[in-house]
Write a protein that binds this DNA or RNA. Structure first.
Length: 223
DNA sequence: GAAAGTTGCGCATTTACCTCA
DNA sequence: GGTGAGGTAAATGCGCAACTT
């Protein structure tokens, strides 16, 4: 299962994790849209209070700077451009600035902030994902501990298991489990009662939580 | 070719402003 | 109407790489 944001420009992280819904991990995008709405009670030319000249004046100790609010169209174009490229070369920056009637520096800053927001969202998603994974592992651990306790309690005489291949009864002491792939193999070594008891739980392990994968995660080497 | 200085860029952090509950 | 929280544009400072002298 791949968890992907509704807005592909916001996140690049792809998380594969069976059994988990992505919806709760996604921050609401509604407010993002509202942020760029024209405030009620202000005409658009009044709303764009800081044009190029104003800003240059304020940076030289002039009147205090006013907050620039990008128009919907400006935001749309910037987002579109960001989707294509997360960084701009000087030519692209210049062209975009001209198109948007902004200074190249403003475009540059917007891209910096946009990259930072993407990264923040990605980190939040990773955090959420790790928390869920931790929770599922904790639960799995608890379940297995319980099983071990039960098996310890019913330990009477030499434990045996049914061979998956021949359906014959095999002394459990001859079975071991590969810790990596969790397959049962027969050996002649005696691993002691606890080890063999755990071995008998192999069938239950088939219900284990599948290891979630982040894009870069490598699959374990074949056993 | 090596070292020092310059420039441009990206990023992290901080500040200032705005909106909304 | 005042206020605090959250969002975001902009400023600042730092590190790094490429280039020049």
């Amino acid at each position: 299962m791949a968890v992907l944001p509704s807005n592909s420009s916001a996140l690049e992280l792809t998380i594969s994790m069976p059994g988990f819904s992505s919806s709760s991990a996604l921050p609401s995008s509604v407010r993002d849209l509202d942020i760029n709405q024209v405030p009620s009670g202000g005409a658009e030319d009044e709303w764009m209070t800081m044009n190029i000249d104003d800003e240059e004046e304020s940076s030289n100790g002039g009147p205090p700077r006013k907050k620039l609010r990008l128009t919907k169209e400006q935001s749309r174009l910037l987002e579109e451009s960001f989707r294509q490229n997360h960084t701009l070369n000087p030519k692209q920056k210049e062209a975009l600035a001209m198109q948007l009637k902004l200074r190249p520096r403003q475009v540059e800053v917007w891209f910096q902030n946009r990259r930072a927001r993407s990264k923040l969202k990605q980190t939040e998603m990773e955090c959420e994902y790790l928390k869920r994974w931790f929770g599922s592992l904790t639960e799995q651990n608890r379940r297995l501990q319980r099983e071990v306790e039960e098996l310890r309690a019913m330990k009477v005489g030499p434990p045996t298991v049914i061979s998956p291949h021949s359906c014959e009864s095999i002394p459990a002491s001859t079975l071991t489990m590969c810790p990596r792939c969790e397959r049962v193999t027969t050996t002649s070594h005696d691993k002691g009662p606890i080890k063999t008891a755990i071995t008998t739980t192999t069938t239950t392990l088939s219900t284990k939580v599948a290891t979630p994968t982040i894009q870069s995660r490598q699959s374990p080497a074949a056993c």
